[in-house]
């Protein structure tokens, strides 16, 4: 079913691309095509901006081999929502090297956008945002991931993210002592 939808979208995309070059067509690792506004793509992604400026955009679908169709769909969805819903929202460049740097809290729609994602989808999206150099989307997704860890013990975090405890016995004892040392008063 997904394949059919992909083909349908592909044809549609080509038609639109011929008529209107205000968009770019992106191709996921599994060959699905997605269309996104050229302006939004260039504004939100440093990598896409570079490709557009450098003329390495393929009208038949620019290959993004590192990004799966679901993640790319979310990326495109984010770009379109960003372009439509809040055109005035200026991107605040949040310098990563400063804890105290002004990070603009996610907007309501951005919050909803990441909240509806499954853990898998969130993981793929944050990697895609990183790969495409989408600073704001990276900010929003990383913020969401950090919220999932807030106030949780190591065990709880492992459960949330399905992470295996891979410490050796000795390391574990060292960490246990460190935590006890710092967080339980005599």
């Amino acid at each position: 079913m997904e394949v059919d939808k992909g083909k349908g979208e592909a044809e549609e995309t080509r038609k639109v691309a011929e008529a209107d070059r205000d968009t770019v067509t992106l191709k996921s690792s599994d060959g699905k095509l997605f269309e996104v506004s050229k302006e939004a793509a260039a504004r939100l992604s440093t990598v896409l901006a570079g490709m557009i400026a450098g003329g390495s955009i393929d009208d038949n679908g620019t290959d993004l081999k590192q990004i799966g169709s679901e993640a790319l769909e979310n990326v495109v969805d984010y770009c379109n929502k960003h372009a439509n819903s809040i055109p005035s929202a200026a991107l605040i460049s949040s310098s990563i090297s400063f804890n105290t740097a002004p990070f603009k809290e996610p907007e309501e729609w951005e919050r909803k956008f990441v909240d509806r994602l499954s853990h898998d989808a969130l993981f793929d999206l944050v990697e895609a945002a990183n790969f495409l150099g989408m600073e704001r989307l990276l900010d929003v997704t990383c913020h969401k991931i950090s919220e999932m860890m807030k106030g949780k013990s190591p065990d709880q975090i492992r459960e949330v993210f399905n992470i295996k405890n891979d410490y050796t016995k000795e390391e574990l004892e060292e960490i246990r002592q460190e935590l006890a040392w710092a967080f339980y008063d005599d």
């Binding site: 944050v126 950090s146 807030k150 975090i157 993210f161 405890n165 390391e171 935590l179």
Partner: peptide, 23 residues
């Protein structure tokens, strides 16, 4: 990416759990 997540999480929460999750 994890670095950015940790920055947003804050030092205290890193201490309390995130830094002991896995190697």
């Amino acid at each position: 990416i994890l670095f950015t997540v940790f920055l947003k999480l804050g030092q205290h929460d890193i201490f309390c759990g995130a830094d002991s999750v896995c190697t």
